[in-house]
């Protein structure tokens, strides 16, 4: 980062007593904000290490009085976490493959090939952006049932190819690749398939990586839709947590927090590790919110 010469405030402003005091208060407020952000995350990690009686005590303690690491072992065995983790990863992998093949090929065709009715087809895809998903949520459910996909992974995998937002991001990115590369490849006799897999796809790795963050976040987070359309043995981690942990009647709070922490830690670590990359990708798809 470049050196900070001035912002809204100049160094001259900061020499004034009043401004200096206000600036200090502002910094304190930001520190308070950061604590508010981090506190719920840390407390769930620590609550997972306490005795159940300590979690239920009032006022709550922050650090555990005694460290009970065996809670995490109990939490690990409470439900079959690796099994549901495997399902989540299968959903992620399948969605990614469908995104690359279906949306990648389509955006390549829209961006780098010419054919009659191209813009009409593009509108056919992009018009779906204007119809809020909640309004056809129930028909969508009935539709999956009618198609006989209900319960299987295909009910999540195949619709992953119908994502106009991802298509738009991919096409915009591919518009930035120079046409000359493809023209010279075609003159050298490369087929269109080869142009896609050996030129367009490798050059679009950055945007596919960004999409993979979104796809991963959806696979890891989404509990509502999967819990209705996937059968019991295909449920992903978050749907299982909702069914067996959040709605469990007889489950000690400390074990509950240990399970929640186990589910929370992987995305947090991935984020902290790839933080620069993820935040950069976020601007690309920033609109998604």
């Amino acid at each position: 980062m470049k050196s900070f010469d001035r912002g809204i405030l100049s160094s001259y402003d900061l020499k004034k007593g009043k401004v200096k005091a206000a600036y200090a208060i502002m910094n304190l407020l930001i520190i308070a904000m950061m604590c508010c952000m981090v506190y719920p995350i840390l407390i769930s990690l620590f609550n997972g290490l306490k005795l159940n009686t300590e979690v239920n005590s009032f006022p709550p303690t922050f650090l555990p009085k005694e460290w009970h690491f065996e809670n995490y072992a109990k939490a690990w065995n409470y439900i079959d976490l690796p099994f549901y983790f495997k399902n989540t990863m299968l959903l992620f992998a399948g969605n990614m493959v469908v995104t690359i093949l279906v949306l990648g090929l389509a955006s390549y065709a829209l961006s780098k090939m010419n054919m009659p009715f191209k813009s009409g087809i593009q509108y056919y895809f992009l018009m779906t952006l204007f119809i809020p998903a909640t309004t056809y949520m129930i028909p969508n459910f009935i539709n999956l049932k009618d198609l006989g996909l209900m319960g299987s992974f295909a009910a999540v995998w195949l619709p992953a190819g119908a994502n106009a937002f991802f298509l738009l991001l991919l096409k915009t990115f591919m518009d930035g690749i120079h046409m000359e590369i493809f023209e010279s490849a075609r003159i050298d006799g490369a087929s269109e398939l080869r142009c896609f897999f050996q030129i367009a796809f490798p050059l679009s790795i950055p945007i596919f990586a960004t999409l993979s963050i979104f796809v991963f976040a959806t696979a890891w987070n989404d509990w509502f839709w999967p819990s209705f359309i996937l059968s019991q043995e295909n449920k992903p981690l978050s749907a299982a947590i909702r069914d067996f942990v959040l709605n469990a009647r007889r489950l000690d709070l400390n074990i509950r927090f240990a399970i929640l922490s186990i589910v929370m830690v992987p995305p947090v670590i991935i984020f902290l590790f790839f933080q620069k990359f993820i935040l950069r990708g976020l601007y690309l798809g920033g609109v998604k919110g």
Binding site: V98, L101, V102, L103, L105, A106, Y108, A109, L110, M113, N114, M115, P116, K118, I121, Y124, F125, T128, I131, T135, Y136, I138, P139, N140, I142, N143, L147, L158, P159, G161, A162, A164, L167, S191, E192, L193, F196
Partner: peptide, 28 residues
């Protein structure tokens, strides 16, 4: 031939958008 390839590339997306977006919207 190139048109044909273009349509082939678009075909999977047209099918998925039809089956999983436009069809449910229409059915709704």
């Amino acid at each position: 031939k190139r048109y044909l390839w273009g349509y082939l590339f678009l075909l999977p997306a047209v099918i998925t958008f039809t089956l999983f977006l436009w069809l449910p919207i229409f059915k709704g």
